[in-house]
């Protein structure tokens, strides 16, 4: 469990990083917290020729809420999101600090970065699920300047994205608030990767818990741990349904019926489908009750 040989560079700015990446070519990886990359290197599952450490670049750690939504700097620590109490952020994006608590353990949250997690593209990772749920945009810097990519065009599969080897994520942009939203997951131990994770939002048209007889305008459900990408459940059938327990249960069954999850040490496909149904129902119950 010692990494294969590699060279190490530390950069101080985004342009310097892009130039360094262009010079190093395909074999280089960005080190942006290292909470996934370094263990993979120690297992020799990842063998980058070079690491470009971007964690000392100033100015990339922020959460900024404004009229066009929420912008999160790529080097924002998970822990910073977790501790965020800015009322402007919490108003509409309170899901993010709540969801941060599901990420690993405290040392991981203190070191791991938002942009690093998106770049790593683990399909069960909390930020990846929320980026899909909330239809975020990824802002990338490359030799030709900045470009913005919707996450639907960013994640390609397990740990793979459409970012070029000489590009660096600088920011995540969440254009739309989601007041009634929740993320829940199940793992046998606190802090483990989710066996299945469910990120959901429901549009009730108004703030506060649903009044009796209220209907959902629309429901959005994204699952992690059931395939190579965050899985977006087709919830068209739920639009206009009552904002009530029976609908949340139906959403769970709908999700279970649509996925084709893998078998692994946690259980077979049938178990993961049951888990998905449970978690979607629970997440929607929580989401609807959000203030």
């Amino acid at each position: 469990m010692k990494p294969a040989p590699f060279s190490y560079y530390r950069t101080r700015s985004v342009p310097e990083t892009v130039a360094r990446l262009a010079e190093l070519g395909d074999g280089a990886k960005i080190l942006a917290g290292g909470q996934s990359l370094v263990p993979m290197m120690n297992f020799r599952l990842a063998r980058p020729d070079a690491l470009v450490d971007v964690t000392r670049i100033p100015g990339l750690e922020y959460l900024r809420a404004g009229p066009d939504g929420l912008r999160i700097g790529a080097l924002t620590r998970h822990r910073t999101v977790e501790l965020c109490r800015d009322p402007v952020v919490l108003d509409g994006f309170g899901l993010l600090p709540r969801a941060a608590r599901w990420i690993g353990h405290y040392p991981i949250r203190a070191r791991g970065t938002f942009g690093g997690s998106i770049a790593h593209a683990d399909p069960a990772a909390e930020w990846c699920l929320l980026a899909v749920l909330l239809e975020a945009n990824v802002v990338l810097a490359g030799p030709a300047g900045a470009r913005t990519v919707p996450v639907s065009d960013f994640f390609e599969g397990f740990y793979t994205t459409t970012a070029e080897p000489d590009e660096m994520i600088t920011e995540l942009h969440f254009p739309r608030a989601a007041r009634h939203a929740a993320l829940t997951e199940f793992a046998q131990r606190q802090g483990d990767f989710a066996v299945v994770a469910a990120a959901v939002s429901v549009d009730l048209g108004v703030a506060g818990p649903p009044r009796p007889g209220a209907a959902c305008r629309s429901v959005r459900v994204v699952l992690g741990g059931v395939g190579p990408l965050p899985f977006v459940v087709d919830t068209g059938a739920l639009g206009g349904q009552p904002a009530a327990a029976a609908t949340w249960r139906a959403a769970g069954e709908l999700a279970a019926a649509q996925i084709d999850p893998p078998a692994d040490g946690h259980g077979g496909p049938a178990y993961r489908r049951r888990l998905a149904a449970t978690l979607v129902e629970r997440a929607l119950t929580e989401a609807a009750a959000a203030p």
């Binding site: 046998q188 131990r189 606190q190 802090g191 483990d192 040490g265």
Partner: peptide, 14 residues
């Protein structure tokens, strides 16, 4: 079960 991710020992939380 060749890592501590897959060989799940109990932690203080469990």
């Amino acid at each position: 079960s060749a890592t501590f991710m897959d060989y799940r020992m109990p932690t203080a939380a469990e």
